[in-house]
Design a protein around this nucleic acid. Structure first.
Lengths: 329, 329
DNA sequence: CAAGCTGCTGCTCATATGATCAAGACTATG
DNA sequence: CATAGTCTTGATCATATGAGCAGCAGCTTG
């Protein structure tokens, strides 16, 4: 090797750096092999490798992902690592004219992604599901044969006496019809008037057996609701204005399976929770696969609360919600 | 492969693109192997390779060299490809307070680079050299043992009668002393009064033998001079004000070996050229290795002219000159 | 000047990557 | 409903790259 001559060191100009840039140019821009670069530069391919290594370490060469959607992947990674999730899906929701449209579109997009994610995951055995507008949309996106699961079981009470029914049954039915699984409903309201009644109902075979099935299911799919005048629980008549005021007072930010949480991930109003029929959150959190779906403006707080409660290990949501969660975690 | 299920096509979101970004993220940011990426994403490593390929082709991933000196390498490449050079060296010259300082610093930097380049190239046999301020500086930067060449020969006339001598002998001597090569001077002025005298001198053994040696040398090292009041030929008394005016009239932009060129690379003033003693440019251009050195503000035009004349195959210059040449080529 | 030390070089070998190919899946069309 | 064509997929093999190591040069220090 004649490299020895360079040891005379006539190098005020950073000859080594020059060599590095030249190597980077030939390798990254012209796509030569390290061998070819070495030949052109008169150095061994090992040296070329080391030069490129240095270029990368010293950030003389920057590799960046410039696709506009990369931020979604970054949000997904952020959610996964911060909350130890198995996976996360964050979808882009194009802006719409009105906030109402935005909410509808977000729900539609997120639900589609949730359905795709569920399909890809191929859950088996029994699958517990909640209800609500988002879950209804998820159900609508499921395609026949999406899972080989044997049973679909409702995770919480849903039977409504109101003029605007919950359509909870449709959710379960659609999950079942598209998969050939049997279905099991929870024939009870989401929330009743007293803890004693809740206990009595849960002890009764009608509700109790479904609850037992919900308990033993290895998979759960559920959405998150907001607290406030647009709450589905209010519309369905499960809670009244007084409850709403108490929830607001207690700092509730939304609900999971009808159980309202405050931002720290704890039950906001234990007295109300004791009147709520369905799987308790600790038991939900214990499942192997927990797909939580949050779609639409204002879902950030309840999403964060649910994540903190540890009852989600697969998150599906929109960019706005994910951003809020990451920013406030 | 369960990939079949994805063919149901619940993909308004560009699922494939999402996968691509995820792969790019894991591969380029987290530095996993394609195998590992494939495992995490549930696809084969071949698919990962194809995804990354696509990401690169579609510019979803951009690899850029961000080091501040990369522009110098780009200029070098530009010079090499535009003028079919063997190599080019473009050096950075930090700004100074005054233009005069700038010229001195540029000469110093470029000369250092030229000396380093020469050293790295290890020319053998005979080496022809020109003279001038830049060449003197190059000579000063040579370190003992820089070449195993046998002879250093002066390429053009240099003997001056003026108060300010050319110091051309110092250039040759320094080249010789640092290498152990013998030296051969050209004992004649650069330019004489008549073509006849030039011919007579070149026929004489004193000049003729040196000229023959200059002709047979396989390597040449020379600098480029500007035309104008600061011309070294004027200062040395080789040309007078009248010649200068004629050169300006003829569109001369500078000289190589005392031969003045116009921007198109041709002899600007043939009548003057016939009075110039030394190697003709066609013979210079025929050599295997021609190191041309241009340093300092205002050298762009003569550098371009010399390149167009085809008498350079290794260019050493500063950023300003290189930029000018590229922009005007 | 000797001796130890540091840092750099190129080597060997394991691994990662890319090119090419054959088979299968889906589409479009008769 | 068949069938040809196109696209995608994973396998094989050659090549490119990276990890770890031993040798050597130059520097420092006694």
């Amino acid at each position: 090797m004649r490299a020895g001559v360079s040891t005379v060191g006539q190098d005020e100009l950073g000859l080594e750096t020059r060599l590095m840039l030249r190597a980077a140019q030939l390798y990254y821009r012209l796509h030569l092999t390290q061998d070819q670069v070495g030949e052109r530069l008169g150095v061994s391919r090992f040296k070329v490798g080391r030069l490129l290594d240095r270029a990368l370490r010293e950030s003389a060469v920057r590799i960046e992902i410039v696709h506009p959607d990369i931020r979604l992947v970054e949000l997904e990674d952020g959610l996964c690592s911060r909350f130890r999730l198995r996976s996360a899906v964050v979808v882009d929701v194009p802006p719409t004219a009105s906030p109402a449209d935005q909410e509808v579109l977000a729900r539609e997009r997120v639900a589609g992604a949730a359905a795709a994610q569920l399909t890809a995951m191929r859950p088996t055995g029994a699958i517990g599901v909640s209800w609500g507008r988002t879950m209804l949309e998820v159900a609508a996106h499921l395609r026949p044969g999406w899972t080989a699961a044997l049973e679909i079981v409702q995770l919480n009470g849903a039977m409504s006496r109101s003029a605007r029914p919950t359509r909870a049954q449709e959710v379960v039915e659609r999950f079942g019809l598209t998969s050939g699984a049997s279905i099991q409903l929870m024939p009870a309201p989401a929330i009743v008037g007293t803890p004693e009644l809740r206990e009595a109902l849960e002890r009764d075979a009608s509700v109790g057996e479904t609850l037992a099935a919900a308990r033993s299911a290895q998979t759960a799919v559920f959405s998150m609701g907001v607290v406030g005048t647009e709450s589905v629980h209010l519309a369905s008549g499960f809670i009244g204005e007084a409850d709403l005021a108490a929830l607001a007072e207690a700092g509730a930010v939304g609900d999971v399976l009808g159980r309202f949480l405050s931002l720290d991930g704890r039950i906001a109003l234990p007295s109300l929770d004791r009147r709520t029929i369905g799987l308790p959150l600790e038991e939900l959190a214990a499942k192997a696969l927990n797909v939580g779906v949050a779609a639409g403006p204002g879902r950030g707080p309840i999403a964060l609360a649910a994540l903190r409660a540890g009852c989600i290990n697969v998150m599906v949501t929109d960019e706005e919600t994910a951003t809020w969660v990451i920013d406030h975690a």
